[in-house]
Design a protein around this nucleic acid. Sequence first.
DNA 1: CGTCAGTTTGAGCGAGCTCAACGTGAGTGG
DNA 2: CCACTCACGTTGAGCTCGCTCAAACTGACG
Lengths: 239, 239
Amino acid sequence: MEARCPHNRAAVSCGDCRMNALCLPIALESHEIDRLDRIVERGRPLQKGEYVYHAGDPFRSVYAVRSGAIKGYAVDDDGTEQVTGFYLPGEIFGIDAIGHAVHRNSAVALETSAICEIPFARLEELSSQIPSLQRHFFALMSREISNDQQLIALLSKNSAEERVATLLVSFSARHARRKLSATRFRLPMSRADIGNYLGLTVETVSRVFSRLQRQGILAVDKREVEILDSDRLKALANA
Amino acid sequence: MEARCPHNRAAVSCGDCRMNALCLPIALESHEIDRLDRIVERGRPLQKGEYVYHAGDPFRSVYAVRSGAIKGYAVDDDGTEQVTGFYLPGEIFGIDAIGHAVHRNSAVALETSAICEIPFARLEELSSQIPSLQRHFFALMSREISNDQQLIALLSKNSAEERVATLLVSFSARHARRKLSATRFRLPMSRADIGNYLGLTVETVSRVFSRLQRQGILAVDKREVEILDSDRLKALANA
DNA sequence: CGTCAGTTTGAGCGAGCTCAACGTGAGTGG
DNA sequence: CCACTCACGTTGAGCTCGCTCAAACTGACG
């Protein structure tokens, strides 16, 4: 049964990992996967509240989520936090520090999580030898830029309701990619984290959830969410 | 005198370009600069309103600004525009499309501008041969991510006044890097562009300028800006 | 000299913030 | 087993900053 628990499969290889379709380039040959596999470090699982890295830590690696959920956030000069992203299984994080000496953001586990650490120096080497891998990491970075720019547009143009709807649609899609239910899932983060990420107060986030529930679009119980009318939710999102 | 006009120096080489300290890796050897120089394409100058690329165009190159100013913006599904950045001489743009087949954003000249086009396929090749060049481009991409994340924090936490102040401080610093006055400069974009970029309406931007002027922090005449009290401006920005 | 894009200013309104109170459930110690 | 705490979430009431709508001004360009 040990092998069944996603957090404890420290010995699992990239070739066997259920997430590999998400975090690896599809075009990779199996012997190339083995080479990548050999540089990936898989530590013990992180408990809720444990950090992958803190802002100011030297940048050495990028990371992939195997299970659980990670929150990334920056702290600016006056000490206010800005949540920069939520990372789910199969997703890569820490790439915003590539090319900096130190991390600008912190990354903390929102629940018990298993993480793959990929030392960047090794990855750079390997990338120069495997073109499709290099492409893949360029693509990852530019996808991060695109995501950030979509978030910028969301923050600068959309109402509280649209922002929350967009977040829910995003989580729904990301669950679906992992062959999980697109309509029923548990949010790994608090209302405060959602509000921080979306530029809203806790109260506003809470009120929006209540309103969407009253309109029959959602059924919400704390962090448990069921999407009842995904068409109307998508209509609110992005628009 | 022809050689004095920055827009018309189509024949200038990277080694001679006044901007090279900004857009090239400092560590590059002169024969490496020559190799890079040979792949850079320098077209005729763009007039105000002419496009470098449109959203949907196939991605082939990244670009450097030699003179003038470029505005980048995305158009989302419902047709609303989101300005994603302003690019000044010495700055690189178009890197958000690396790893995508097509550009997600459009880039348009805000005034007469000279642009260097760097075909990405060639750059990739050269990067794999010149490690410091590869590092440089990774650094550029992650700097773009950092910038976007700072903008996200700005939009999600700061008031209209703080947003405008931050923009002005940024322009001031970027002018200073080019050895131009940090206190007196001309904004290349309209109030509407500023508002779009900062998630504010034209009217609000205009009112903030007026208020900062009344407080003796700025002297503004249309797009001409003089920073009178840069300490107070910096205190408003970010903080 | 008329037109038109860009900018400024005013008046009123409303979405989301602030402040405050209360509810709920998980963990802890008696 | 219950009492207590503490983090988290919800709800209400009032206020405020920035938005909307409207009007007038400026300068560039035909």
